[in-house]
Simulated scan of single mutants.
Amino acid sequence: MIVTLLSYKGGVGKTLSAIHLAAYLAGQNATALIDGDRNRSATKWAKRGELPYPVVDEKAAAKYARNYEHLVIDTQARPNPEDLGALADVSDLVIVPTPPTAMALDATFLTLDALNSINCQNFKILLTLIPPYPSTDGKDARERLQELKLPVFAGEIRRMAVYQKAELAGALVNKVSDRRANMAWRDYQSIGSEIIDG
């Protein structure tokens, strides 16, 4: 399975999600994360610590593709139309992560317009960085997306400071010492399960 994460906006939890969804898939079968982001955020994360799968440069993707059951592709923000078409063509699933803010949702709609322009139908929106109760931003964003009949993951990724700890340590969130680490990991397990179950 090839899973691509893309967005027309930075800071939406794209690399965070790529790293943790690759970890979930690695628990199912051999997985590699392809770092196609110009900032090489996933590569830097991996170099600070240890991840349970290889993180490879996009230029080496062809070499790794034949050795792994699953590939997760972390893309640059706002890929050009040619790259977008190529990514959509090779991907079994395109994940569009978005926080529940007006600016992020606007960027998500631009991303979806671009996907629709190349007739990409195999996408799903992932709500990320959901603020805690009593905020209703996550619920409100979900309702808006559902009203538009857009495909949205049933699970969502809550905003938690433990992710910054994981990034600094170069580790998965469930490998850092924090009382919310397992809760954060369960969010990604839920999404991973949705991906596998189709």
Results as ranks from 00 to 15, higher is better:
Gly138Phe: 01
Cys120Met: 12
Ser41Cys: 14
Gly192Ala: 10
Leu93Gln: 08
Arg38Leu: 15
Gly27Ser: 14
Ile118Gln: 10
Lys59Phe: 10
Lys47Ser: 15
Glu69Ile: 11
Met103Asn: 12
Ala88Phe: 00
Leu150Ala: 06
Arg186Tyr: 08
Ala169Thr: 01
Ser91Cys: 06
Glu58His: 09
Ala154Tyr: 09
Asn80Met: 06
Thr43His: 06
Pro131Leu: 06
Asp89Glu: 13
Glu58Asn: 13
Leu148Pro: 04
Arg186Val: 05
Thr98Val: 08
Leu105Trp: 02
Leu115Ser: 03
Met160Pro: 03
Ile2Phe: 05
Ala171Gln: 13
Leu84Phe: 05
Leu6Phe: 03
Asn174Tyr: 07
Lys124Thr: 11
Val55Lys: 00
Thr128Ile: 02
Ala181Ser: 11
Asn80Pro: 04
Asn122Thr: 07
Ala166Asp: 05
Lys175Gly: 00
Lys59Thr: 11
Glu50Thr: 12
Lys44His: 13
Arg180His: 10
Phe123Asp: 01
Asn122His: 14
Pro97Trp: 01
Glu194Met: 08
Gly198Cys: 11
Tyr133Ile: 12
Gly192Met: 07
Gly11Asp: 02
Glu69Tyr: 07
Lys9Leu: 04
Asp187Met: 08
Tyr163Phe: 15
Tyr163Arg: 02
Val72Tyr: 07
Ala88Met: 03
Gly85Leu: 07
Met160Arg: 15
